[in-house]
Amino acid sequence: MTAPMLKIEGLRASYGAIEALKGVDVEIHEGEIVTLIGANGAGKSTLLMSMCGKPKPSAGRVIFEGRDITGMTTHHIMRLGIAQSPEGRRIFPRMTVLENLRMGAVVTDPAHFDQDLERAFTMFPRLKERQNQRGGTLSGGEQQMLAIARALMSRPRLLLLDEPSLGLAPIIVRQIFQVIREINAEQGMTVFLVEQNAFHALKLAHRAYVLAGGKVQMSGTSAELLGNEEVRAAYLEGGH
């Protein structure tokens, strides 16, 4: 097997005295969709943010494409071929859709902006309709689409998605996940998806990690985890 695209080894991180990550190991291979599921406060978002430099890992290593990126500053890491759709979307509310997309492309060559824009609009026709509208006036689903499209504008090789389903209606969540599937299948984009919506995430991903109390509790292919009694009981209750 080839070396993983992203390798997280024994990562630890804390907020002050509280240790949120207690030695996490994750591997992501090129072309995969890997999901990280877990309950509120399990440390999912912390893991994502910590591998991006903030909070700084207190121990462990993060290796991206053979390069040690542990403890680099966030803006530096984001120029190496990793892009992020942060938790809560964080689009720029007073800027238009088009300006938001431009902000996503600041780290790349402006020469292929038009081409990338065209691709983003093909993926999300809704954004094309709303291109001159201010980000803050979009619906939640549209804002999430914008956040993903904005992340993709930097032509990343690894896309990090933090809770894209947060606060969205089930039908919108399905749409968003469908787009993620297409991005992966058609462009070969490697995706690391942090989700609380375990059922949808497991349906979408190839492999999955279950995080609890700052540690990886379980990992395996999505099919395995979907069939696992413990996972079903802990994360899939509520009948899907």
């Binding site: 966030t74 892009a83 942060p86 720029f92 902000m103 780290v107 930097s154």
Partner: peptide, 10 residues
């Protein structure tokens, strides 16, 4: 508008 988002965009 949003400093955290800016950092996430490099």
């Amino acid at each position: 508008e949003d400093e955290i988002a800016c950092r996430a965009l490099g």
